[in-house]
Amino acid sequence: MCKGWSALLLLAAALAAQSPKYHVGRAPTSDEIKAWDISVLPDGTGLPEGKGSAVEGKALYESRCQKCHGAKGEGGDYEQPIAGGKDTLKTPKPIKSVGSYWPYATTVWDYVNRAMPFDRPETLTHDQVYSAVAYVLFLNGLVGEKDVLDAKSLPLIKMPNRDGFVKDPRPDVAAPSKKKGS
């Protein structure tokens, strides 16, 4: 029944792709879309103009980020480490930092831009976001202090754990051999 329902919806979708059925909602302007569309893809699509380096990011980090993330990104009272943890993922105490775990530098940019600082999100300029991200990557030893990050250079950074993610293989835990009865 549910599959039939899904099939109907798929059919409906295919049909309605030709023409709208309910004519509800209005077309957004391109400016509206541009203002709302803040997401960034791993290839850099969505990254805006602007630039920054760790040199510029240091002061910003120390004033707005360090309280939660620690002077060297080691974490603190509020947050887990965002730096360090190299080669710890297989160990009994894995540290999932930006440098040891995050697969894409673009994700760091996207997240800082949309959600940081925690108490004042979306208050940083694009230059400040590039600078803050550069400083976090610098703390992880992934860029030099003077390396300038922008929409072109940021996506080119190969994060150490880029290839560390696998597809969901579940169900992965074998059912007990004695499934039926007591």
């Binding site: 894995p94 697969p103 560390g164 696998v166 597809k167």
Partner: peptide
């Protein structure tokens, strides 16, 4: 035509395995 790889599907909500790899897009609740 692709995932965005947001923070909550990379840094968080991924499942670290003993071999150091992490499962991604582990959607279903078993």
């Amino acid at each position: 035509d692709q995932p965005t790889y947001t923070r909550d599907e990379t840094s968080k909500y991924t499942d670290l395995m003993p071999d150091g790899t992490a499962r991604q897009f582990t959607f279903e609740m078993e």
